[in-house]
Every structure is written in C-alpha cells, then in structure tokens.
Simulated scan of single mutants.
Amino acid sequence: MTSSADHGMPMLDDFLAYTLAGARPAASETQGACAHGARWSWLDDGVLSIEPAVREAGTRSVLVSAGIHGDETAPIELLSLLVRDIANGAAALTCRLLVILGNVDAMRDACRYRDDDLNRLFSGRHLQVPESHEAPRAAALEQAALQFFAAASSAPGARWHLDMHTAIRASAFEQFALLPHTGKPFSRAMFEWLGAARISAVLLHTTKGNTYSHFTAQACDAEACTLELGKVRPFGQNDLTRFAGADEAVRALLAGTHGDAPAQLPRVFTVIDQLTKQSDAFELLVAADVPNFTPFAKDTLLARDGDYRYTVRHDEERLVFPNATVKPGLRAGLLVVDTTDDTLSKLV
C-alpha cells in the first residue's frame, strides 16, 4: 500500500500532530497526490482540501470540521485518521472534501477557546469583537467555506457540511445533532444519514444563529449539521470505538457508498425558547450536572435573573446546553419539545 509519506508529505499521515506542532509546508510543498489519484492541497493552518481522482457533474462537495472548540478532541482525532486513510488508500473518496480543524490555538492550549466561543462568531459576528483572539479565525473559516463551495455543484444534495463536536455534559441522548434554521424544508437525505450514523436525536433551531453550520447553510446553501458525539476528554484519552457510528457514516458519505435507509430515524426536538443570561445575577435552578434533554414538567421554574423568570409553559420541555457560566448576553440553555412525527412527515 502506498503511504502518503511516499509522496513527500508526512503531514497527511498525522494531520493532527502536524497542525498542533505549528508546522507549515514550504511553498513548493502545499500540494500533492494521495493514493488512487486524489489530489490534496494545504490551504491554511488546519485546513486541507482533497479532490477526487475523477470529478463528474454533480460530484458532491463535503466540508467536515472538528475542533471549533479546542477541547473537543475525539472528532479531531477521527478526522486526522480519516485524512491518513484517504491519503494511503484505506478509505475511498468519490467527492470533493474540505477538512477543517477549527480553533487550532485553543487545541494547542487544551482549552475550549482563548477569548470567545468561536462557534458564536460566524455570519459576520466576529466583526463585533475585532480584538478577540478568535475573530480572525472565524473570518478565515468563513472564507475557506465560501471558496470551497464556490467551486461546488449546485445540484440538490451536492453540498454538505458536517461539524463534529463533543458535549460538555452527559445527555439523555448520548449522540445528537443540531440542524440550523434556514426557512427551507428539512432534507430526508440528511435525516437518513443521521440515522445511519446512529444519531438518536435531532434538535431543530427555529432562529438564525452564529454557528459554523448556520453560516454554511445560509451563505453556502449546504446541507449542514452540528454533531454532538459524546463527552469532552483530553487528547489521547478518547475511546474512539464509541464514535464508530458517525465515523463509518462520514466515510460512507465520502466514498459514495451510503444508500439504504436506516432502520430508524432519529427523534426530533424543536427549540421553543432559550434561557438568556442577562447579568451576573443569573441563576440556573437545576442541578449543576443535569444531563442534556432532561425533561421538566409544566410550571417548573428553571431560571431567574433580576426580574426575569423562565417557567416551563408546555406539559413537558427538555433543557439542552444549560450553562450558567457564559458571558452576560449569551445563551444559557435551550428549551425544546418533541416534534418527531410532524417533522418526519414533512421531509423532502
């Protein structure tokens, strides 16, 4: 089997280590060949494109990102292994691929972010915090996506973005996905892919956001999702077998071998409100370790902040991403309700 090192690029054998080391290729070494004729290009720190040997009209273009939060290490490790396997021919590639390791500086520091949550700075919000360490990276990742999808087919289902994360806390559904709000109907192909990836729940946003997947859905017309694939752990301490469902589904998508509908589609929850931390007096009235998707009954008081109160209005609301430590003005939790039957009946 041909190693990517035979092509002069040990970078591809361990893209994570190469990136964490701060290595940058010489100008004459930013492009090369993988096994089976695929061509790679190093574009920026942690940004790598790979073009398939054969590109036909309608060829799918897939952006796979990880490490938008620097401490979410398992998806970063999976993505580095995927690059290695494509480079040496162990994984097939029939589509255009853009690999992005997001907040590289935070990855090097083993922290979530330096100044600001990178996944709240897209769709131009980085312009509001020009002094932030993360602002230039958000701008660079927007441009990387725009340039990649500018060369993509505009055929239905030809543009995908999978943004892989791990959650801070436990969850009633260990692996779940979030789909951005675009105003367009949701895609059956995406839901079937999520089912194949063994994603057990999907959260539907109902307003536009500033996440990377919101940006690519809006600005690049991509089928985009954020994947939450387990818990945050340091590099080298992940049991990657726990992520096999998503890893296999990503590889099947890139190889063009995904097809049969999964036996079960995920449950679906729709956002109906959010908790907003208005001041440092904000109180989140739940246990500090409450799992994501914990249900609460009608009339339960969940949060208060001065005169602000949030009380459950529906018979059951589930709390996702509770976090009282965010900066004032930011989201401290999402409230969702089950909309499985209605959503799945309207997929296109």
Rank of each mutant, 00 (worst) to 15 (best):
V286I: 14
A172K: 11
H205E: 08
A144W: 12
A38F: 02
A196V: 01
H165E: 01
I86W: 03
P262I: 06
R198P: 04
G230W: 15
I86L: 13
L141A: 01
A17K: 08
T206I: 08
P295F: 11
A263V: 15
H36C: 15
R313A: 13
G37V: 13
H165A: 02
A219M: 10
L141S: 03
A38E: 11
V83N: 03
T300F: 10
V232W: 07
D315G: 08
Q143R: 14
R137I: 00
I68G: 03
G46S: 07
F122I: 01
M9Y: 01
Q175E: 07
V312H: 08
G58S: 11
A297H: 05
H314S: 11
L79M: 13
A252P: 13
L334M: 04
K346A: 15
V337D: 03
L78N: 12
L118K: 06
K346M: 15
E29V: 04
F243H: 15
A33N: 11
F149W: 02
A249V: 04
F191T: 13
T59R: 13
V83S: 07
I272V: 15
W42R: 02
E248M: 07
A90L: 06
S213E: 06
A201Y: 05
T241R: 13
R251L: 00
A224V: 02
D109Q: 05
V336H: 09
W193R: 12
P266C: 09
L81T: 10
S154W: 06
R159S: 01
S80F: 07
L97K: 09
A90Q: 12
V83I: 13
Q218T: 14
Y310W: 12
A246Y: 01
A21P: 02
G306E: 11
F321M: 09
S154L: 14
L194P: 12
D14T: 01
L330Q: 13
D85P: 03
V286W: 11
L82K: 07
